[in-house]
């Protein structure tokens, strides 16, 4: 996606102070990745990713199509397990525990690490039942009415739907559906929320609402977001990882981490030429 050059707007957004001022070093580590490789059959989608993800920050994965950023994101809650032939190698540690370790239950991983998908995938149920689904399948003991209200409030949707809780979730607009998915996700009380291009199918107003919401949620949750939209990464994220697709010596295309650092630095003073080319719209 060759966006228009964004540097000017970016400075504006960052000086307006929406993103936190993060230190260069990641202090409160949630995830540690060491030489992580994800492959489908013989094809390695993404290689040699080593980075650490900080608690209560928004980390954005950006890069051109086919750079493996979505694939990488799906590794964090073992959603890749569901794709036949997918394999994750290297270390992906959550609070120091390898989530691909032999005794780790992927179901438990997914409870701790929730996910919001590109297309709002609400269930063909009522708004209420969409939110209550997660707690029900996980046998969470709670007053369901209170929990539903709390989650919908946190997802900035309560005021719009409080009188229609029994209505089908399909009656909502795309942006509302995506906020419902976020409410559904936080209802199982995760620590991390993965977002795979959450605004890709939304209009600018709905996108702005989701972005506001993300900043709100970042006070409580650790958020990882994959986005095609560089302005979005610049607006909402604290840290940015830039990936690119490259050919190796054998001519095989694969994804690779190019640069990782505080968003402010990635967008204003990128260290790598490829990052600079990409964010200035010269490529990608």
């Amino acid at each position: 996606m060759a966006d228009e050059p964004i540097e000017l707007q970016l400075t504006h957004d960052l000086t307006s102070g929406r993103a936190q001022q993060v230190s260069d070093e990641v202090n409160n580590v949630v995830f540690t990745l060491q030489d992580l490789r994800v492959s489908y059959g013989d094809y390695q989608a993404v290689r040699q990713v080593s980075l650490t993800i900080a608690k209560s920050e928004i980390t954005a994965f950006i890069g051109p199509s086919g750079c493996g950023k979505s694939t990488l994101l799906r590794s964090f809650n073992r959603m890749n397990d569901l794709i036949p032939g997918a394999k994750v190698e290297g270390l992906l540690a959550y609070h120091g525990i390898d989530i691909y370790g032999p005794d780790v239950d992927p179901i438990e991983v997914r409870r701790k690490i929730g996910m919001v998908f590109q297309k709002p995938n609400v269930f063909p149920k009522s708004i209420y039942d969409n939110v209550a689904y997660g707690p029900r399948v996980n046998h969470i003991k709670a007053n369901m009415d209170d929990l539903v209200e709390e989650c919908l409030t946190k997802a900035a949707l309560w005021d719009e739907v409080k009188d229609d809780l029994k209505k089908s979730a399909y009656a909502l607009s795309g942006g509302q559906q995506q906020r419902l998915v976020i409410a559904r996700c936080i209802a199982v009380r995760p620590e991390v929320i993965l977002m795979d291009e959450p605004c890709a199918s939304l209009d600018p107003i709905a996108t702005a609402k989701i972005e506001d919401l993300m900043r709100q949620l970042a006070l409580e949750y650790t958020i990882l977001i994959v986005t095609h939209n560089m302005q979005q990464a610049a607006r909402v994220s604290d840290r940015t990882a830039f990936f690119t697709a490259e050919l190796d010596d054998n001519g095989v295309r694969h994804g690779r981490l190019v640069e990782y650092g505080p968003t402010r630095q990635i967008f204003s003073a990128p260290q790598d030429k490829r990052t600079e080319d990409y964010i200035s719209g010269r490529f990608g």
Partner: peptide
């Protein structure tokens, strides 16, 4: 039934049977 409904359910920590 679209794949993303299953994905949504599994991502919430539901088992395959659920």
């Amino acid at each position: 039934v679209p794949r993303n409904i299953r994905d949504g359910s599994l991502a919430l920590g539901a088992t395959e049977w659920q």
